[in-house]
Amino acid sequence: ARCQGVVCAMKEAFGFIERGDVVKEIFFHYSEFKGDLETLQPGDDVEFTIKDRNGKEVATDVRLLPQGTVI
């Protein structure tokens, strides 16, 4: 199932997405972002798939959504 959220933090090689369905942040590695990383910034709406890696939830297949998609 695809989830939606808003990019809330960006570091050197990874970032965090504030999920739209639950009050929780989820980790994503930049290699999982399908698009131009140069244009990705905090506040952007994205959709993603949640996978379990070593007992921790991570966002994979992260894709940009049109602004205003995530309420």
Rank of each mutant, 00 (worst) to 15 (best):
1 A>I: 15
1 A>R: 10
2 R>W: 05
2 R>K: 15
2 R>V: 12
2 R>I: 13
2 R>T: 14
2 R>H: 15
3 C>I: 15
3 C>Q: 15
3 C>F: 15
3 C>K: 15
3 C>N: 15
4 Q>F: 09
4 Q>M: 14
4 Q>R: 07
4 Q>K: 03
4 Q>T: 15
5 G>K: 00
5 G>H: 02
5 G>Y: 02
5 G>E: 00
6 V>S: 11
6 V>R: 13
6 V>L: 07
6 V>W: 08
6 V>I: 11
6 V>T: 15
6 V>E: 04
7 V>E: 00
7 V>C: 01
7 V>W: 00
7 V>M: 01
8 C>D: 03
8 C>Y: 08
8 C>I: 11
8 C>S: 15
9 A>I: 05
9 A>G: 05
9 A>C: 04
9 A>E: 04
10 M>D: 01
10 M>G: 00
10 M>S: 03
10 M>N: 00
10 M>C: 05
10 M>E: 00
10 M>V: 04
11 K>Y: 07
11 K>I: 02
11 K>E: 11
11 K>W: 04
12 E>W: 03
12 E>A: 14
12 E>S: 10
12 E>G: 09
12 E>K: 11
12 E>F: 06
12 E>Y: 09
13 A>R: 13
14 F>M: 07
14 F>L: 04
14 F>Y: 14
14 F>H: 14
14 F>V: 05
14 F>E: 06
14 F>N: 08
15 G>T: 00
15 G>L: 00
15 G>C: 01
15 G>V: 02
16 F>I: 09
16 F>E: 01
16 F>T: 12
17 I>Y: 03
17 I>H: 01
17 I>M: 01
17 I>N: 02
18 E>V: 03
18 E>N: 15
18 E>C: 08
18 E>I: 15
19 R>K: 08
19 R>M: 10
19 R>Y: 12
19 R>H: 10
19 R>N: 07
19 R>A: 08
19 R>F: 11
20 G>D: 07
21 D>Q: 11
22 V>A: 14
22 V>R: 11
22 V>S: 14
22 V>Y: 07
22 V>G: 13
22 V>H: 13
22 V>I: 13
23 V>N: 14
24 K>L: 04
24 K>G: 07
24 K>E: 12
24 K>W: 02
24 K>F: 02
25 E>Q: 09
25 E>M: 10
25 E>H: 13
25 E>P: 11
25 E>G: 10
26 I>M: 05
26 I>W: 02
26 I>A: 04
27 F>P: 13
27 F>V: 14
27 F>Y: 10
28 F>S: 01
28 F>K: 00
28 F>H: 00
28 F>A: 01
29 H>M: 11
29 H>G: 06
29 H>Q: 13
29 H>K: 05
29 H>W: 05
29 H>F: 12
29 H>C: 09
30 Y>P: 01
30 Y>E: 02
30 Y>L: 08
30 Y>Q: 04
30 Y>S: 04
30 Y>I: 06
30 Y>C: 05
30 Y>N: 04
30 Y>T: 06
31 S>L: 05
31 S>P: 04
31 S>Y: 07
31 S>D: 10
31 S>C: 07
31 S>Q: 15
31 S>R: 09
32 E>S: 05
32 E>D: 05
32 E>F: 00
32 E>R: 02
32 E>W: 05
33 F>E: 00
33 F>C: 02
33 F>Q: 00
33 F>G: 00
33 F>D: 01
34 K>I: 06
34 K>Y: 07
34 K>C: 09
34 K>F: 06
34 K>G: 08
34 K>W: 04
34 K>T: 10
34 K>M: 09
34 K>H: 10
35 G>L: 01
35 G>Y: 00
35 G>S: 04
35 G>R: 01
36 D>M: 07
36 D>L: 05
36 D>A: 10
36 D>G: 06
36 D>E: 13
37 L>D: 03
37 L>R: 09
37 L>M: 12
37 L>C: 07
37 L>S: 05
38 E>K: 15
38 E>L: 10
38 E>G: 12
38 E>P: 08
38 E>I: 10
38 E>C: 08
38 E>H: 14
39 T>N: 14
39 T>M: 10
39 T>V: 12
39 T>S: 12
39 T>P: 04
39 T>R: 15
40 L>E: 00
40 L>K: 05
40 L>R: 02
40 L>N: 02
41 Q>W: 06
41 Q>M: 08
41 Q>G: 06
41 Q>C: 13
41 Q>T: 09
41 Q>N: 10
42 P>I: 12
42 P>W: 02
42 P>G: 04
42 P>E: 14
43 G>L: 04
43 G>P: 00
43 G>S: 02
43 G>Y: 03
44 D>G: 05
44 D>P: 00
44 D>M: 13
44 D>T: 08
45 D>V: 10
45 D>H: 14
45 D>Q: 12
45 D>C: 13
45 D>M: 10
45 D>P: 14
46 V>P: 00
46 V>D: 01
46 V>T: 00
46 V>S: 02
46 V>Y: 01
46 V>F: 01
47 E>P: 00
47 E>L: 07
47 E>C: 06
47 E>F: 05
48 F>Y: 08
48 F>E: 02
48 F>L: 02
48 F>C: 00
49 T>W: 08
49 T>K: 08
49 T>E: 10
50 I>H: 00
50 I>M: 11
50 I>S: 04
50 I>G: 02
50 I>E: 04
51 K>M: 06
51 K>R: 11
52 D>L: 12
52 D>K: 09
52 D>Y: 05
52 D>E: 12
52 D>A: 12
52 D>N: 15
52 D>S: 14
52 D>Q: 11
53 R>L: 13
53 R>Y: 15
53 R>M: 09
53 R>A: 14
54 N>R: 14
54 N>W: 04
54 N>A: 12
55 G>L: 04
55 G>S: 05
56 K>M: 11
56 K>N: 15
56 K>F: 07
56 K>L: 09
57 E>I: 06
57 E>A: 10
57 E>C: 09
57 E>F: 08
57 E>L: 11
58 V>N: 07
58 V>G: 03
58 V>C: 12
60 T>G: 06
60 T>Y: 04
60 T>D: 03
60 T>C: 14
60 T>Q: 05
60 T>S: 07
60 T>A: 11
61 D>Y: 03
61 D>Q: 04
61 D>V: 03
61 D>I: 03
62 V>D: 00
62 V>F: 01
62 V>R: 00
62 V>L: 03
62 V>N: 00
62 V>A: 00
62 V>M: 02
63 R>L: 05
63 R>W: 07
63 R>G: 04
63 R>E: 14
63 R>F: 07
63 R>T: 14
64 L>M: 15
64 L>G: 09
64 L>S: 07
64 L>K: 15
65 L>V: 15
65 L>Q: 12
65 L>Y: 04
65 L>H: 11
68 G>V: 06
68 G>Y: 11
68 G>K: 10
68 G>T: 07
68 G>H: 11
69 T>K: 10
69 T>V: 10
69 T>W: 06
69 T>D: 14
69 T>L: 05
70 V>I: 10
70 V>W: 07
71 I>P: 14
71 I>N: 12
71 I>S: 14
71 I>W: 08
